[in-house]
Design a binder for these strands. Structure first.
Lengths: 206, 206
DNA sequence: GTCTATAATATGATAGAC
DNA sequence: GTCTATCATATTATAGAC
């Protein structure tokens, strides 16, 4: 009995380990080639498993994709959630832009995966977009409008401000190839951060 | 002899017509599903040709893709090219942002096709990025720096300003699904334009 | 130039031994 | 749980008649 339990625990551990390996490899593959472009063969090779063995953990290719996609959604919401109506608007927005940019630069693959999904109509995350994401944007738009009402920042359309922040911060991850082609090398994160904050927030000071 | 010539002309006309049909259909398919996701079968059906007939005009799937991609590159450069160092900076930049946004909204498929290509490493347009695009950005960065030197606009990093304009304007085309999910409906172009111009350029007034 | 038929390949998924 | 072998299917591309 004890040995049997130990065995189960052992197996479960290996399961979790392998699942983690698969998700890591899947993120690399799907972010680079898209859902249709990436193959389970590539993913299996990248994490040292055979194709049938991978499909033992995830029955279908789509299941792997959805799993890795959903793993990134939580992280996606987090920075915006922190926007505090009681804080100083410029400080709050600066922190938000900084965090969003840092996440994009630190994990460009997740950003690309997400961008690719939305670019092709978001077939797997409609509910996320229309549910949690929409609700959060609505909540934080109210925060920004409150700041405007209190004349703490210049008048601004809150939804479009949020879109602009997303667009610019993710641009450096999603279109890194273009950025590097034009700048001749990888942009310096610190300089990028300063430039982005200036561009997006300078016009808001009341 | 005259008839023979007429025939050739006729054929050439049909060729051009069919090529145009193919490129139009290919843009729809590739922008929606990506390069790997789109099939020549879909494209052929969409323009009423048989698959072998399509492959008579373009030998390989990749040739169709490259053709439709390159057809969009010229249009891509055009608005930035108009930035005139002798004009009023705010007027010039406002015009540029407006044109860029209008093109994105009018032809979101081309924007998506382009975004997808870059997202996946731009394997087919490396030369375009490192050549004409880079050169043009360099030229127009100098224009913006000149305006800064003349104290006509506030100090700004010209490359990052251009990136921000691209990111925000294309966002409404590339991520339209997300924008609509959050706003509940298609955004009004006029309101979007005003919001984007305010957000990007308000901070630049000297 | 256009078609039907088909070859050649890639890839998702399963069967069954161990 | 993991493997080899294989099936089933989708898709690119070509052959050859008309």
């Amino acid at each position: 009995m004890p040995q049997s339990t130990a065995k189960i625990v052992q197996k479960t551990r290996i399961q979790h380990q392998n699942q983690a390996l698969i998700l890591k490899a899947a993120l690399e593959v799907f972010s680079a080639f898209g859902y249709r472009g990436g193959t389970i063969d590539q993913i299996a090779k990248k994490c040292g498993l055979s194709k049938p063995n991978l499909l033992y953990y995830f029955k279908r290719k789509e299941d792997v994709y959805v799993a890795v996609l959903e793993a990134t959604l939580a992280e996606w919401l987090e920075p915006l959630r922190g926007l505090d109506v009681n804080g100083d608007p410029i400080v709050e927005l600066t922190r938000y832009v900084s965090e969003k940019l840092e996440i994009s630069l630190k994990n460009p693959q997740a950003s690309k995966l997400f961008a690719n999904e939305i670019l092709h109509g978001a077939p797997h995350i409609q509910k996320f977009l229309k549910g949690p994401l929409r609700d959060l944007v609505e909540e934080k738009s109210a925060v920004i409008l409150e700041w405007v009402a209190q004349k703490k920042i210049a008048p601004v359309d809150p939804q479009h401000l949020i879109f602009a922040i997303w667009a610019v911060t993710q641009h450096y991850a999603d279109f890194s190839v273009q950025v590097e082609a034009i700048m001749g090398s990888e942009p310096k994160p610190d300089r990028t951060r300063k430039a982005v904050i200036e561009l997006l927030l300078r016009g808001l000071r009341a």
